[in-house]
Amino acid sequence: MDFRERLIKLRDENKLSQQEMADRLGVTRQTVSRWEAGKSTPSIAQIASICREFGIDANELLDCDEQPQKPEEAKTRGKKFVAAAIVLGALFAAALAGLIVTIVYAVKDAQYDTSSTVWVVTIPQNTPMIVLCVFLGIFMALIAAVFAYVVIQGRRK
């Protein structure tokens, strides 16, 4: 339903003739006739006057309450959400697995009077430490970026 039809409907609901409506709005009958015929549109002040006179909301009259999402936009948002959900799901699963392993290990540890542990890690002898540091740094930055993205998206919504 376009503006023209909504205006006619409004007049019908109030059981008014074009002349009576024009009188209430302080315009001529021809003006109302042109609005209803779609030949012209009321000014902002006239729209405000219509809303005031008939006690309706401007959004309702202009039908601009909620714009439906364009299908492409919705599709893109959906894809982004799925990608973010996968990444976050993977990180959450890793964190959960770490927590479970830690709890299991702590329970196992409690069965002994004492325990000592050590990580034994060897890397190829010609691997510079700086390469490992950069690699770890990038990985941590990526996790931080995903986290920041989710926080920013959450605030926007």
Partner: peptide, 18 residues
Amino acid sequence: TLAGCAGQTFSFLSVRMK
């Protein structure tokens, strides 16, 4: 990187007593 580390050691050892 992991493939490059094939043949290397990445282990977690513990010694316990009770």
